[in-house]
Design a protein around this nucleic acid. Structure first.
Lengths: 218, 218
DNA sequence: CAGTTTTAGTGAAAAAAATCACAAAACAAC
DNA sequence: GTTGTTTTGTGATTTTTTTCACTAAAACTG
């Protein structure tokens, strides 16, 4: 009964709660959260019920307490270190993107095969030769990697990562990578995200579908 | 019975077929495709069945014919023009990303409020003042937009886009935007993609979940 | 304090999605 | 041309996910 989709919704609730919290709100009702995340109020309550989270009849949920519970369920936020492989467009955008830090993730380094990309300047996130991946990952005990290389190289990079000891990967190459047993792979295909929207628009299905909602991970 | 998820799978099949085609293959079996896309062979056949696509018993599917049928169902590939709003990390990465062109999409222009970002050099994708969005969209009859601005500005940008006549949006700001009726919004939350992987790793659920697979669009 | 309203919590029901299982067609081998 | 094998196509079944419908607690109202 407790499944991927449910976990993903919990993560979304958490994010939404964060935002509400920063805005100074103290409590929420199931339908506020539902709204923020794009599901029904029933769904929110059922999800919480599944994890034994309970609020107050007529009083909703205390945001702070709720966040605490969610953090507990989702695994407390010790900062996770992440490496990126591929310092092209997407890789370097992710390197510079501030959003990860905010949520307690740190990009420890980026790796590339192109010496022109190398960067060891103090203050920058280092861009290092791919050969160093294995040692770096081991030394820093890194579990999570991001693949931002062309599709042709993606499988090879994945193999390297897994060999180095990485356990979870977000793959931005437009090819589905398969998880070896014991690893988690989340394939994110940017082109597909756009194509999906295009499909619904050119086929005039706007009416029927206000929201496309799905996730793809592996 | 014909739903979003199914459409998304069709798009994936199409992408996979493209790849196989380029590799010189001429026919596929349902299980090849299943493999490439990460579903079961039954699923592939059922999806095809739903759209009246049929192959040859024992002979599988001719890739070329299949692609043609899929293109027909998914709306023939006339090149779609797209605008981006936000010329920051993600926006400029997407601008430079070659993957869109390959699939018949063209980034017509990018818009920003920061004059330092403006770029009208011949050969580059132009980066223009946000004020010009409305006219540009109308003039070029653009239906699809990408939001790559900070969360705080996202809703405002969406409103602008919709007012200009854009019908479908991919939103990279880490906040869920709601579709006005008649519009399609696909929220892509990069941080969440990473968080999801982290969750499954730190909770040691690798065994149970080889693949996280879902999409979220709105 | 009795009545009214609001909102959580949850088992039951419904809907949606995926899988199974098997018939039918196509081809191969002999 | 009979037998055996492979692979599609699809109705039936199962599983999963979502929604419904109702109870009960809490908080207001006057």
């Amino acid at each position: 009964m407790i499944n991927k989709k449910c976990i993903i919704r919990l993560l979304r609730y958490k994010n939404a709660l964060h935002r509400l919290n920063n805005l100074g709100f103290v409590k929420v009702f199931s339908d506020n959260l539902a709204d923020a995340v794009g599901v029904t109020a029933s769904q929110v309550r059922k999800d919480f019920s599944l994890f034994g989270i309970c609020g107050h009849k007529r009083g909703g949920y205390k945001i702070e307490a709720l966040l605490e519970k969610l953090n507990h369920i989702l695994g407390k936020n010790e900062q996770q270190k992440v490496v990126i492989v591929g310092s092209g467009n997407i890789g370097s955008a992710l390197m510079k993107y501030r959003g990860f830090e905010k949520e307690g993730m740190k990009i420890a380094a980026c790796f590339d095969i192109d010496p022109a990309k190398y960067d060891r300047k103090e203050g920058d996130i280092p861009v290092l030769p791919l050969e160093g991946l294995r040692d770096f990952v081991r030394e820093h005990n890194i579990k999570i990697g991001i693949i931002a290389v062309p599709d042709i190289a993606a499988q090879q990079v994945l193999d390297l990562m897994l060999a180095a000891g990485i356990k979870g990967v977000v793959n931005f190459a437009p090819i589905r990578l398969r998880a070896a047993s014991g690893a988690v792979i989340n394939n994110v295909n940017l082109v597909l995200e756009l194509e999906t929207v295009i499909y619904f628009i050119i086929n005039g299905l706007e009416k029927s579908i206000a929201e496309i909602h799905e996730e793809q991970k592996s």
